[in-house]
Simulated assay, not measured.
Amino acid sequence: MQIPLSITFRHIEPSPALEQRIRQSVEKLEHLYGRITGCDVVVEAPQHGPKKGGLFIVSINLRVPGHEIAVTGPRPKDHTHEDAHVAVRDAFDAVARRLEDHARRTRGDVKTHWTPPG
Rank of each mutant, 00 (worst) to 15 (best):
M1L: 08
M1D: 11
I3G: 01
I3T: 14
L5Q: 10
S6M: 12
I7V: 15
I7N: 03
T8K: 11
T8H: 09
F9K: 02
H11L: 12
I12H: 12
I12G: 02
P14D: 05
P14E: 08
S15Y: 08
S15W: 09
S15K: 00
S15L: 05
A17P: 05
A17F: 10
A17V: 15
L18V: 12
E19D: 12
Q20S: 13
Q20W: 05
Q20T: 14
I22T: 04
Q24N: 14
E27S: 15
E27M: 12
K28C: 06
K28I: 12
K28V: 09
L29C: 08
H31L: 15
H31N: 12
H31K: 14
L32N: 09
L32K: 11
Y33H: 13
G34A: 14
G34F: 09
G34E: 14
I36R: 01
I36K: 03
T37P: 00
T37V: 15
G38N: 13
G38K: 13
G38Y: 06
C39H: 08
V41N: 04
A45T: 04
H48R: 15
H48K: 14
H48C: 02
G49T: 10
G49E: 10
P50K: 14
P50F: 11
P50E: 14
K51R: 11
K51E: 08
K52E: 11
G53C: 04
G53S: 06
L55Y: 01
L55M: 13
I57K: 05
S59T: 15
I60L: 08
I60D: 02
N61I: 06
N61V: 09
R63F: 04
V64P: 00
V64Q: 01
P65V: 11
P65F: 04
G66C: 07
H67T: 11
E68I: 08
V71I: 15
G73D: 08
G73Q: 07
G73P: 03
P74Q: 07
R75F: 11
R75S: 13
P76W: 12
D78Q: 10
T80P: 00
T80N: 11
H81M: 13
H81P: 01
D83S: 06
D83N: 14
D83Q: 06
A84F: 09
A84N: 05
V86D: 03
A87Y: 02
V88N: 01
V88G: 00
V88Q: 01
V88S: 01
R89F: 14
D90N: 11
D90H: 03
D90T: 09
A91M: 04
F92V: 02
F92T: 02
D93V: 11
V95W: 02
R97S: 13
R97N: 10
L99S: 00
E100F: 09
E100C: 08
D101S: 13
H102P: 01
H102A: 06
A103R: 13
R105W: 06
T106C: 06
T106E: 15
R107A: 10
G108F: 06
G108I: 05
D109I: 02
D109H: 06
V110D: 10
T112S: 07
T112E: 12
H113F: 12
H113L: 15
T115N: 06
T115F: 01
P116D: 09
P116V: 09
P117R: 07
P117K: 05
G118Q: 06
